[in-house]
Each structure stands twice: as structure tokens, then as C-alpha cells.
Amino acid sequence: MSKILIIEDEPDIAKVVRKRLMDHDYEAICAPDGYSGVQLARKEAPDLIILDLMLPAGGGLNALQNLRLSPKTQLTPVIVLTGMQDAEYKKKVLDEGVDAYLEKPFESKALLRTIGYLLKQKKPS
């Protein structure tokens, strides 16, 4: 069973995303801020990370940079799921290397399709 880390400060969002993932047979773990998210990722080594950008304790970009610096999480697929539309911030995030960028409100079907696609990509390696 694939393990997916949700780094999301909004408990309600985390809750509905987790429900969607569990309904589709994923193991979902949650972190409420950037710092704890990065810690949890290092500890749990999830197969995929869903990352919010507007986060307490460091913010999404900072968390992403830290994930990319750590060997354990360096290659983990990251889906950004955000309500932010700041173009410059988005560009920085994309430059850092993310695998998908979804805006809130998201279509759960699109999210699940993206997850499925990314995990399938990952498996052969």
C-alpha cells in the first residue's frame, strides 16, 4: 500500500484529502506545518507528498527546498495543492522541481488521477 504524506495546515482540507486517499486504498499521514512535514517525510519516507504552500513554520517553498536537499526525500514525487495564485511564487516552486501543481478548489478525480500516474511512474525505478 502506497504511503502518502499530506502537509496541510487546514485540518478540514487535510481531512477531506485523507478521506479521498483512504477510499482509494492509500495510506495517508498528515503534518500541519512545513517543519513537521519535512520531519515526518524524512522519518516515514512516503511514496508521495501532497504539499500546501501557505504553511506556518517555514512555508511550502522552504519545506520543498528541504525535501529536495534530503537524500531520503530527494526523489519523492511532490504534488503542490494550493489556493495561492502568486505567479512569481509559483515560478519559484516550479523551478525547485515539483511533479504536479494543482489549484484549490481541486477536482478530486484530477488529484487521484495525478497520484495514480506519478506512483506508476515511480514504481519501475
Partner: peptide, 21 residues
């Protein structure tokens, strides 16, 4: 506008997903 929009989106996302579920 940026902040309000963002702040609106988050609850909207929660509502939308909850309704879907």
C-alpha cells in the same frame, strides 16, 4: 484581494470536497 481569495478558496475546497464525499 490575494489574501481574501486565498482565504476563500481554502474553506471552499473543504466544502466542495465534503459535499462530493
Amino acid at each position: 484581494i490575494s489574501t481574501v481569495s486565498h482565504e476563500l478558496r481554502t474553506p471552499l475546497t473543504a466544502i466542495k470536497e465534503s459535499i462530493e464525499i
